[in-house]
Design a protein around this nucleic acid. Structure first.
Lengths: 146, 146
DNA sequence: TAGGAAAACGCAAAAGTGTTGCGTTAATTA
DNA sequence: TAATTAACGCAACACTTTTGCGTTTTCCTA
């Protein structure tokens, strides 16, 4: 896709086929990706070292960022390309993932605003994942559960 | 310290000198610890396998829990011993990771309480990571920066 | 558009992190 | 205090990530 090539140019990354495809993958994928998942998505045809180096490059240039998750896996997720750059990453991520339907919902900023003021530290970014049952799944579940 | 021995007994862990000292270390330490940090604190005199096994045991018995780390290392922090047990870990708290010193701090419950009610979904679990500058690093930074 | 510079690539090997097996030592329990 | 169980140290293994190096591809500019 032309858009992806333009982005790679804009961020100073050579437009190899793999890196174009990798960027596409990140655009297609709402949730964060592990190295292993990427390897699988490319049918194990790309050398893992190449993946590691591409991820490192993407991260350094401000295209993606690491998402530490609770299982201690290294995961990467697409940056907000309007607000991120090599110098400054700015990821105001709040997501709700439904246990039942696996959908990811974006949470609006106001949901999370409060928490940024109450710790003694200077908060530059946050990454928040809520898990549970979305409104739709919950209403259907309460019927079948009891 | 007597308190630490009692805790180990209560959680069904043998009171070896190392495990007593390890528990003391967790009590003394505000932020989360890596295996490497523990190894250093014991002046490299304890076999790393022993540390790994002690941490695993502590975690399984409900004394400590894993916390996220920017560099993808395993970090551990003391549980709230009143609410955690082998059966039930109850860590409803976020973590703060400092850009500057890489330390991970646990945030108390009140920080996050608000967000759980304000979305329309049923929240069963959450994973929150704040990033920025911890109080220590921030104060030293503002002096040297300008 | 040709040709040199820089970036990206694959392979092999190394470094780093965490686990397992096993024989020995220390702690618990009765 | 003797038997049982947990913890320990060492060696080896498994898995993840990085590094070195020679080759290939992309980029840039004349």
């Amino acid at each position: 896709m032309k858009k992806h090539k333009e982005i790679l140019s804009r961020f100073g990354i050579n437009k190899t086929q793999f890196r174009i495809d990798l960027l596409s993958l990140f655009f297609d994928c709402k949730s964060a990706l592990t190295i292993h998942e990427i390897f699988e998505r490319f049918n194990k045809k790309i050398n893992k070292v190449t993946i590691y180096r591409a991820l490192k490059s993407f991260e350094q240039k401000g295209l993606i960022h690491q998402v530490p998750d609770k299982n201690n896996l290294k995961k990467y997720s697409l940056c907000n390309l309007d607000t991120c750059s090599p110098d400054l990453h700015n990821h105001q991520h709040g997501h709700f993932i439904c246990y039942s339907c696996d959908q990811t919902f974006c949470l609006d900023d106001s949901t999370v605003k409060i928490l940024k003021t109450s710790s003694g530290h200077i908060v530059k970014n946050y990454n928040l994942i809520l898990e549970g049952y979305c409104t739709d799944c919950n209403s259907s579940q309460t019927i079948s559960q009891n």
